[in-house]
């Protein structure tokens, strides 16, 4: 079963694969510079004390993104069973 979510809905500890990046051109470009493109695996690592922004592990780097920005990223949720068992 495939479940699509927006990145801002990803809970701490969950993984997802990027499906598409929307939003303004400048923002899409910034995301691409950080390596966020179709297929990129993203792990939600932690929330800041006030809940926003949220830090994600993206291509080995920890990047904080605000919720309304991460809402532009559509991703495919990796199910729990996949986590850790597959590379």
């Amino acid at each position: 079963m495939i479940k699509y979510i927006h990145l801002n809905e990803l809970e701490t500890g969950q993984r997802a694969n990027v499906v598409s990046v929307g939003g303004e051109a400048a923002m899409r470009q910034r995301f691409e510079d950080l390596g966020i493109v179709r297929g990129t695996e993203i792990l939600c690592v932690m929330k800041s004390p006030l809940g926003d922004p949220v830090a994600y592990l993206i291509r080995g780097a920890l990047i904080a993104i605000r919720r309304e920005d991460s809402a532009n990223i559509l991703a495919e949720l990796c199910l729990e069973a996949q986590d850790g068992t597959h590379a």
């Binding site: 939003g23 303004e24 400048a26 923002m27 910034r30 995301f31 950080l34 922004p53 830090a55 780097a61 920890l62 990047i63 904080a64 993104i65 605000r66 920005d69």
Partner: peptide, 11 residues
């Protein structure tokens, strides 16, 4: 309105 924001948290 606030613009997009990304911040790297280095190791």
């Amino acid at each position: 309105t606030p613009s997009s924001f990304t911040l790297e948290l280095p190791p």
